[in-house]
């Protein structure tokens, strides 16, 4: 799925990374616990989260993720946007809640598999 399709499906706003919207991604995960993202995520390229702090971007960078979707209208800080830009990452923001945002993407073919064990 192209990141631009994620944007459409979630009615999301692009915070940064407009030039990366053509990138293809195949799986995603949703979590507010970065501990769990670090422990369970394998190759998911997209992170949906309601958590806002710089460790969200750093955690995604450590996991080689390419796109973060902030749910429940959470806005990343200027520091987070700067970090994401540095890593060439796309940040999206949607008014949808976690359950609905994940469900929409899953139903449209963005899988969630890749649990590390």
């Amino acid at each position: 799925m192209k990141i631009s399709v994620i944007k459409e499906l979630l009615g999301a706003e692009v915070v940064c990374g407009e030039d990366q919207l053509d990138r293809e991604v195949y799986s995603a995960c949703g979590s507010d616990m970065m501990s769990d993202v670090l422990a369970y995520v394998k190759d998911q390229a997209v992170l949906l989260t309601g958590l806002v702090n710089p460790q969200v971007v750093r955690t995604a960078e450590m996991m080689d993720m390419v796109c973060i979707v902030f749910v429940r209208s959470k806005s990343p800080t200027a520091e987070m946007v700067a970090l994401a830009r540095e890593h060439g990452m796309v940040l999206l923001k949607t008014t949808k809640r976690m359950y609905e945002a994940c469900g929409k993407l899953y139903a449209n073919g963005l899988v969630g598999n890749g649990v590390a064990r």
């Binding site: 616990m33 670090l38 422990a39 702090n53 460790q55 955690t59």
Partner: peptide, 8 residues
């Protein structure tokens, strides 16, 4: 803050 699951 998103940490403290005892997974590290």
């Amino acid at each position: 803050l998103g940490f403290g699951a005892g997974m590290g």
